[in-house]
Design a protein around this nucleic acid. Structure first.
Length: 557
RNA sequence: UGGGGCGUGGCCAAGUGGUAAGGCACAGGUCUUUGGAACCUGUAUUCGAAGGUUCGAAUCCUUCCGCCCCAGCCA
């Protein structure tokens, strides 16, 4: 009898499919070994998370390994600070490279040895501009350098002298001898090594020549026994060169490079260069500014590693250029936080409410559910008294049709407390509503409607004025107003709004940095590192879905 | 008009000759002490276009159109 093949529950992306095929064909002896190879020249962002999840994920799924390798071949851009931030972020995301932390710079000696192997490369003494001139254009072939046919012996000597620091920066380079007429510009004798007197953050002044990415990368992969070298689409053109390096050097091993589309997100930028600019030009407060799509920014904003991983899984891996809607990222964090974050009441823009028929000096402790999504989260006590704060936007003197929160003469429920009715509106000299005089119904304690009475349409959050704790709340919005920001786009001026007179329930007094909460009816918030016990600071991670906002928006149309 | 890729609903994305998964978003509805969550329902006669092969095509062939990447001694 024929045994049916067991198909995987969900479909595999093209890379996982390819790896499964390789495994089935017993290529690489059944091994899967990937690597995440960041250059330590900036902070990791959500786009890197996609690559990290792919590389570490694919390895884990196949009982394989994934290395962390720093591609530190350009000393003028790289720093320890960046390296440390990258390691921290990869760990935070939830991945572990165990003892497999590597550096391209540890392979410099090997890369040097392979340099002029077998006459496959030559020392060129043209200037940078001359090399550019000789390269040709997209439609015209390049021209060979007059130095292209130097004897192997001479190349060997010159290359050694390059290393020994006998030449000025930029006077010589080592080039691969491939094909100046290749329609693929990357194959027109690409530079392999350049002279650069720069202090390397790990190697110091040990080297004055540094290898180029195209040369260092395939060899690094080979030396580490990488089976699948996953990178982004812009390197597709480089694959022939990747393969050339491995084919023409005495390396007994052949990793396979596979390219996938990098992540783009609407309303933000994801290139290291642009992110660097935002930081250096002061448009944001640093790499970990909660508006930044960096992992450190998202972390400070209150995103969880789980949410980011789920997001990366949800967007898939393919080859077409795509711009993922930020709404998809927001969905991922809401989905995660909904299940795990304790609910709490916080009034962002307070409006004073006096309950006229409530005793002056009385305080009640009312029971509030910590998380309706999690029965084990239990309950807490929330103090109620005569003077309260509610949200300014929860009261309308002239409520539009579908507004069913508080208005003159109207009754609403205060969550876990009582039904209250608005009796009087008090305004200041310029006509602003500054206080509401209300009455409460003692029969509705806890917020339950007595038998036979229908419950109000609105339930609102509130805080007892005498017990509330003042706090600063930072509201974040999309970094850019344009869906696809370009180089001329400027940061959304409304991307950060700081609210200073907020009143939060007393249980928040003991919260710690990084703690996450749902402020009921408003969104998810976390305690910022700037927060102190006597000066609480919260960041809004993301708002709750707000159907009233949609209704109101449509009313205005 | 050199080379390399890619085109499936508003945004992602499965599908690889047998009659268009799923998620996000959106629109209705149920429920609700968060206008939250959850749940239900709806949304591509059509897969960039046009021809062709076939009983049958998003999947095969041809032509065309559109988009992205490459001329760093960056990665």
């Amino acid at each position: 009898m024929k045994v049916p093949d067991l198909e995987p529950a969900s479909s595999l992306d093209f890379i996982r499919t390819r790896i499964a095929e390789d495994l089935k064909a017993n290529r690489n002896g059944g091994r899967v070994h990937t690597r995440f190879p960041p250059e330590p020249n900036g902070y990791l962002h959500i786009g890197h998370a996609k690559s990290i999840c792919l590389n570490f994920g694919v390895a884990a799924e196949n009982n394989g390994l994934c290395n962390l390798r720093f591609d530190d071949t350009n000393p003028i851009k790289e720093t320890v600070e960046f390296e440390e931030s990258i390691k921290k972020d990869v760990k935070w995301l939830g991945f572990d490279w165990d003892d497999r932390l590597f550096y391209a710079s540890d392979y410099f000696e090997k890369l040097y040895e392979y340099g002029v192997h077998d006459g496959k490369a030559y020392v060129d003494s043209l200037s940078a501009e001359e090399i550019r001139d000789h390269r040709g254009t997209l439609t015209e072939p390049g021209r060979e350098s007059p130095y292209r046919h130097r004897p192997v012996e001479e190349n060997l000597q010159l290359f050694q002298r390059m290393r020994e620091g006998e030449f000025e920066d930029g006077t010589h380079v080592l080039r691969a001898k491939i094909d100046m007429a290749s329609p693929n510009i990357n194959m027109r004798d690409p530079v392999l090594f350049r002279i650069m007197r720069a202090s390397h953050y790990r190697q110091g002044r040990k080297w004055v020549i540094y290898p180029m990415y195209d040369y260092a990368h395939p060899i690094s992969d080979a030396l580490e026994g990488i089976t699948h070298s996953l990178c982004t689409l812009e390197f597709e053109d480089h694959r022939p060169l990747y393969d050339w390096c491995l084919d023409n050097l005495p390396i007994p091993y052949r990793p396979e490079q596979i390219e996938f589309a990098r992540l783009n997100l609407s309303y933000t930028v994801l290139s290291k260069r642009k992110l660097l600019t935002l930081v250096t030009e002061g448009h944001v407060k640093g790499w970990d500014d909660p508006r930044m799509p960096t992992l450190s920014g998202l972390r400070r904003r209150g995103y969880t590693p789980e949410a980011i991983r789920n997001f990366c899984e949800s967007i898939g891996v393919a080859k077409r250029d795509a711009i993922v809607d930020v709404a998809q990222l927001e969905h991922a964090i809401r989905n995660d936080l909904n299940k795990r974050s304790p609910r709490v009441m916080a009034v962002l823009r307070p409006l004073r409410v006096v309950i006229e028929n409530y005793p002056e000096n009385e305080t009640e402790q009312l029971d509030a559910v910590n998380n309706p999504e999690d029965a084990t989260a239990g309950t807490r006590k929330v103090p109620f008294s005569r003077v309260l704060y509610i949200e300014q936007e929860d009261f309308r003197e002239n409520p539009p049709k579908q507004f069913f929160r508080l208005a003159p003469g109207r009754e609403v429920r205060l969550r876990y407390a009582y039904f209250i009715t608005c009796k009087e509106v008090i305004k200041d000299a310029s006509g602003n509503v500054v206080e509401l005089r209300c009455t409460y119904d003692p029969a509705t304690r806890g917020g339950d409607a007595p038998e036979g009475r229908s419950s109000p349409k609105a339930t609102m959050h509130w805080v007892s004025a005498a017990h509330a704790v003042p706090a600063e709340v930072r509201l974040y919005d999309r970094l850019f107003n344009e869906e696809r920001p370009d180089n001329d786009s400027s940061v959304n001026p409304g991307s950060l709004e700081v609210l200073s007179g907020c009143q939060v329930e007393p249980s928040l007094k003991t919260s710690n940095h990084g703690d996450r909460f749902q402020f009921e009816r408003q969104g998810y918030f976390c305690v910022d590192p700037d927060s102190r016990p006597d000066a609480l600071v919260f960041n809004r991670t993301v708002t709750l879905r707000d159907t009233w906002a949609k209704i109101e928006k449509n009313l205005k149309k």
